[in-house]
Structures are given as C-alpha cells and as structure tokens.
Amino acid sequence: MSKVAVFNQCPGSEVMAESPLAHQSSVKGGRALIVTEHAFLGHLILRGQADNESLKSAVLSVVGVELPLQPLTFVLNETTGASVQWLSPDEWLLILPAGQEYEVEQNLRQQISGHFSIVNVGGGQTLLRLKGDKVFDLLSKSCVYDVHERNFPVGKAVATTFAKATAIIRRPNEQEWELVIRRSFADYCYRWITDAGREFDLTFTV
C-alpha cells in the first residue's frame, strides 16, 4: 500500500460542479477591462527538492515542460495549456486542463523518487483571466507589486497581496493576465474588482 493516499476527487460529469463565484452574476460592460473566470481547472501543488533530477524529468515527461527553477517564472505548455509555476524554491503550482489532475498526479508519483509531495488544491482556488487596456490600472489599484511590463514580462508569476487578500498574478502572453485566487476569498475579490473596475466600465464573466 502506498504511503500516501491519492484518489480521484472528480466525480463523473453527471455531478454539477459549482465555482466559487457561482452565486455571483456577470457584469456587462466595455472592452477596456474584461475579466473572465476559468473555473474547474486542475490545480496541484508539487513540493520537492530543486536538485532532485527525478522531479525535473518527471515534470518534463508528464507535463511536457521544464520545471521552472528561476524564481517568479512559470512555463506554459502551449499545446495542452498546462503550466508549471515556481512558487518557492521547493514548491510549484501546476495548473492543468480540467479533469487531468488525478492522472498527472499518479504519473508524477510514479516517476519521482525521494522526498516530495503532491497535493490537489483545485477545489480551493480558481483562475481569472484579465485583458484590455486597463488591466495594468486595475492591478495597480489592487496590488503592491510592480506590474509594469519592464518588471513583469510575459512568463512571470508572482504571489502577492491583492487588496486585503492574496493572489498569484501571472502573465501568460502580451494580451492577457491571470489571477489565481482562493475560493473563500473569491467573492471578496469579485466585489473588489467590480468596484475598482467601475471607472473602466469593466466586463466580468463568471
């Protein structure tokens, strides 16, 4: 018997999932700031030693990208949409297409040796995508972190404060930004964003 309990936490498609913002309604507005929730993605926290070769090779073979060792970066698999993000020297966030988290976890566990952990956290966080000319302004109103393009190029990912909550900010491409927020704070973040985005005539799709 494995020393770690792993199980598929996703039911079949007959079970209706509810995102953390299920109770909130969409806001219709302009195109200067468009926020869209991407719920139900697979989120795994991977922890281990950065010098563990099996860790690196496992991530490469299972997720198809190099394990990012450079602080504050993440790597996107353009084909699958999966990504691996550096969170700390021994911690990474894997965001996977919906429903793949169990398989990925199993595959990683088979290939990684030594001291590591993998934890499914998909129920506990959700992802917002932001685009439009006013994203910089919205983020600047909300975060103490410098989101100017000189400091925040594509491929950067930073965990920081977001208003009075916390968030991970990611920049997958020139046009888009991503916010990973915690489930229990999601309603607060929604209210904050809609309030702070009011002057930009925001659109928020949940």
Binding site: E18, A22, H23, D187, Y188
Partner: peptide, 18 residues
C-alpha cells in the same frame, strides 16, 4: 481608499454560503 464598507475586510465564504 476603497477599503471601507463591505470591502473593509474580506468576508470569507464556504462553498455552501449561498
């Protein structure tokens, strides 16, 4: 700033809040 009224402090909800 904006940190007043219902945004004074985050309200945290469970999945069953609604």
């Amino acid at each position: 700033g904006r940190h007043c009224r219902d945004l004074f402090d985050p309200e945290r909800y469970t999945a069953l809040h609604a």
